[in-house]
Design a protein around this nucleic acid. Structure first.
Lengths: 163, 163
DNA sequence: GCTTGAAATTTCATGCTTGAAATTATTGGC
DNA sequence: GCCAATAATTTCAAGCATGAAATTTCAAGC
């Protein structure tokens, strides 16, 4: 019994896809470098800290440490350190969970909320600046294409879930 | 005197571009996570090491440390450590530069060259797998769009140059 | 032949990141 | 009421990454 083979991926397509990946990586690094630099210079903070604040800004009622690390798709131990520093800076609060002494809830302080609001606005501006050459259609297309990445269930790591 | 305003970027476009950025970031992270994981499991190595090997594979005659860090767009001190470990693994050689005791040339050993060749092949396969849903047109479009990122001379960090 | 400035690296402190091991608390069965 | 499995975190060692400071060497000008 022969299996129906898709007319799939001449080896040339593989090369083409690799090129896409390299371009994508390059563009991403450019944006990231800019954001990092601007966060450093204008807010004296870092991208990981910004990411944590963003997640907590979105979930106003706070998140448990494990929920936070899941939301950010980073390791558990990682958030521990970042949150530690954010707490030290007074941007984040740790609240014990009633009825479960293992867990702690983490949420923004007032100051954290205000600070992040300012950062987020600036951030949107930076990104808009770097992507300023993308037209509306470009955006639509890009989003459509990017959404298919990793869609087909190969063994694409155990990443999926929300948003 | 009023300045001629491009019909540019209704605030809505800014939001749209931000969405593109978030998608792009997500897709990139997915690919990167997969590549990292596979490098770790199948070759017991890391992405930064792979990147260094790739650069040296391309420049057969070797690179000076500063050329290497420029090619990879990472800090000088960073490469020092990675190269150190690659030398310890026997994949990379350090060669003094005749006539300049400050600089050293860094290049692949035979073993390094062979090892990287195998890695690169596997790498291309992984990427092709993750991007398998991208058609030829998708690729063309994606590349075209990605190339415009950061094109316009805003203050987009001091990144440009080769490839 | 000095000296001063620039160039090529390394060193350093700090922080991010991971996976694995350890810790502490909860839960369900018995 | 105990006990094993599971869950929520933290701790840890290693490596990556940065910008800044320190080191060593070179290259001109005088």
């Amino acid at each position: 019994m022969t299996i129906q083979q898709k007319p799939t991926s001449a080896p040339c397509m593989a090369k083409q896809r690799l090129r896409v990946w390299l371009r994508m990586l390059k563009a991403t690094k450019l944006v990231e470098a800019t954001v990092r630099e601007n966060l450093r210079v204008e807010f004296d903070t870092t991208l990981p800290r910004f990411d944590v604040l963003a997640a907590l800004y979105r979930f106003e009622d706070g998140l448990k440490m494990s929920e936070l690390s899941a939301a950010l798709r980073v390791s558990n131990g990682n958030v521990t350190g970042i949150v530690e520093r954010l707490v030290a800076d007074g941007l984040v609060l740790r609240i014990p969970v009633a009825g479960d002494k293992r867990a702690t809830l983490v949420r923004l302080s007032i100051k954290g909320r205000e600070t992040f609001a300012r950062m987020a606005e600036a951030h949107a501006g930076w990104v808009n600046g770097i992507l300023q050459d993308l037209s509306d259609e470009d955006c639509e297309q890009a989003i459509g294409i990017l959404e298919t990445v990793g869609r087909s269930p190969k063994l694409t790591a155990k990443v999926d879930a929300n948003d």
